[in-house]
């Protein structure tokens, strides 16, 4: 074999090994979670180390149990409510805010533009105690709407930052064309900027949704009434309960994970770039 062939072979082998390693890292726990949630309880107890899944013995009772006996329908609705409102507000505010710091000239514009991310330098754990105290005093603590506020504060900096970077790549001349053709500033944002930013808006929406859907710390601290629990809070509640059943916890975990997975698969095609090609010369 020539030196070149040897190099190619080594690279190919390394690539396969690398991919396999990461796939196993990610896919195995996921597989294990799904498999455990579908196996009948007796089988888990009898043979806990068995990794196989017998398709003839698939048992969906754990899901039924979790959804209807342990209040997960409620938790899903709560999580959906919190996540969707957070996404809507975050995308809307980040769009106008990102546009403002990119295109409009005002006092403190560049400071605003660059200080957006500073808020992200504070870890959530530093903020959670003071916020707990403040919200307790204000009587706002045990409420999903407060969670929305906190999630917004958490996601907006990154959302603004992402959209700002994207807006900067949009050609100014298209906006000027819109202004001359009869749009107001908001008209330009609505009819030109937003359609052209669909990929960026989809990423921001997805990012925000994942944060809001998965968030645990604030939900754990702020929510006391089981009726107001979000999914992640509900899973922990379930895992901590006396009659711990691994099967139920796994089913609950699947319920947390699947929506994100489908959302990602669905939005993935919108994340592709290249929407503006053709506007300009060349």
């Amino acid at each position: 074999m020539s030196r070149e062939q040897i190099e190619h072979t080594i690279i190919r082998v390394l690539r396969i090994v690398g991919i396999l390693f990461f796939v196993l890292m990610v896919a195995f726990p996921f597989y294990w979670m799904i498999a455990s949630s579908l196996r009948p309880l007796e089988e888990i107890l009898m043979n806990p180390a068995n990794l196989g899944l017998d398709f003839r013995k698939i048992d969906l009772s754990a899901y039924y149990n979790v959804l209807f006996d342990h209040g997960f329908v409620r938790y899903i609705l709560n999580s959906l409510y919190v996540s969707i409102i957070t996404v809507a507000l975050s995308v809307a505010l980040a769009t106008v805010g990102g546009y403002a710091v990119t295109r409009l000239r005002f006092r403190g514009q560049s400071f605003m533009s660059y200080s957006i991310l500073i808020i992200y330098m504070f870890p959530a754990i530093v903020l959670v105690i003071p916020l707990y105290v403040i919200f307790s005093h204000m009587g706002l603590r045990d409420s999903v709407n407060v969670l929305i506020l906190v999630y917004l504060a958490q996601t907006l900096p990154v959302a603004l930052y992402m959209l700002r970077s994207y807006f900067k790549t949009l050609p100014l001349e298209i906006e000027n064309a819109g202004l001359i053709d009869g749009c107001t500033r908001f008209g330009v944002i609505w009819r030109i900027i937003i359609p052209l930013s669909a990929p960026a808006l989809a990423s921001v929406g997805l990012y925000t949704f994942m944060i809001a859907w998965n968030e645990f710390l604030f939900a754990f601290m702020f929510l006391d009434t089981p009726d107001k629990f979000t999914l992640s809070r509900g899973v922990v509640q379930l895992a901590g309960s006396v009659h711990l059943s691994k099967q139920l916890v796994m089913a609950a975990s699947v319920l947390v994970t699947l929506p994100i997975l489908f959302l990602f698969l669905f939005f993935e095609r919108y994340l592709a770039r290249g929407m503006t090609s053709g506007a300009m010369k060349g």
């Binding site: 000027n176 819109g178 053709d181 009869g182 749009c183 503006t276 090609s277 053709g278």
Partner: peptide, 20 residues
């Protein structure tokens, strides 16, 4: 007057067509 009220039209060097 704002650009939209001036009743002018402009052709840009880069064309600036609406790609969508």
């Amino acid at each position: 007057l704002a650009p939209r009220d001036r009743d002018v039209a402009m052709v840009f060097q880069s064309y600036a067509l609406y790609p969508h």
